[in-house]
Amino acid sequence: MNDIDLRPWIYGTDHDDPGPRTPTPGHVYVDLVGGPLDGQLLDVTAYTPEERSSGGALLISNCGMHGPASRPV
């Protein structure tokens, strides 16, 4: 295992993305905490500081408790 394998997965990257664990320089990421997405990173570069601090987000995921396209709870 190398250092790249130890980086967190970036939420929203495609399964065939050559760098699903490599953050894009200049982008802002937050850690996802709890549930099946725990430990992944989410790119929040497009959000304002106010939107980032709103306290949470609902994400659509194939890892959801109720099957594909459900919210990870």
Rank of each mutant, 00 (worst) to 15 (best):
R7I: 00
R7H: 04
P8W: 00
P8Q: 01
W9E: 02
I10P: 06
I10T: 11
I10C: 07
Y11M: 04
Y11Q: 12
Y11H: 14
Y11T: 02
Y11R: 10
G12H: 08
G12L: 10
G12C: 11
T13R: 15
D14H: 13
D14I: 05
H15N: 15
H15S: 13
H15G: 15
H15F: 12
D17Y: 10
P18H: 11
P18C: 11
G19C: 02
P20I: 00
P20C: 04
R21N: 09
R21E: 12
R21F: 01
R21P: 09
T22L: 11
T22D: 11
P23C: 12
T24C: 08
T24V: 14
P25Y: 07
G26V: 01
G26Q: 08
G26R: 10
H27V: 06
H27G: 05
V28I: 12
V28P: 10
Y29T: 03
Y29K: 00
V30K: 11
D31Q: 07
L32E: 06
L32V: 06
L32T: 09
V33E: 10
V33I: 11
G34N: 13
G35A: 11
G35P: 12
G35Q: 14
G35L: 12
P36E: 14
P36I: 04
L37W: 02
L37Y: 00
L37T: 02
